[in-house]
């Protein structure tokens, strides 16, 4: 499946991906200002830039083939779509036990810091037809959305 890959060699570590991701998943997906100023709780990014200068790269859910989070989820909220391969969290079923946060080997699932009990994770902007917003907005083309086979491993 197509995944978002980070090209750490050109990642400027600016974290704009976080800003745009947070906005896209907020109540005001088309306005950064409204998302950050009008939403009651601060919007949360589902992508995280890891920084250990000079190393920086953006990390988000890898949508694993055998996703530990789906197996650990106690309510069945976290599921992998057999068609698209995208792992999503059904917020209406999530009870906020954070098992998924615990088992994710990448640390790609976060608690919604606003206290909301929903786990927050990358959905590859599944509502969009185009590239995920982080890929679109990366100012240095450090994120790509591509199908990369594992053949070479």
């Amino acid at each position: 499946m197509k995944r978002v890959y980070a090209r750490e060699e050109v990642c400027a570590g600016c974290k704009l991906c976080e800003v745009y991701c947070a906005t896209a998943h907020s109540e005001y997906p088309s306005s950064i200002l409204k998302a950050f100023q009008r939403q009651e709780t601060r919007p949360v990014a589902r992508i995280l830039v890891e920084v250990d200068q000079p190393l920086t790269f953006a990390l988000q859910c890898r949508h694993c083939e055998e996703a530990d989070c789906t197996q650990g989820c106690i309510t069945g909220a976290m599921t992998k779509d057999p068609e698209t391969g995208i792992v999503t969290n059904d917020e209406s079923r999530c009870v906020g036990c954070w098992t998924c946060v615990l088992v994710c080997p990448y640390g790609a699932i976060k608690r919604d810091e606003s206290g909301h009990k929903v786990a927050s994770k990358c959905d590859l902007c599944s509502n969009n037809d185009t590239n995920p917003i982080c890929v679109q907005k990366c100012p240095n083309n450090a994120l790509i959305f591509a199908e990369i086979s594992k053949g070479g491993d």
Binding site: A12, C14, K15, L16, E18, V19, L33
Partner: peptide, 9 residues
Amino acid sequence: ITCKVCVNQ
């Protein structure tokens, strides 16, 4: 919006 992009750049 205190995103701190300016800080890190």
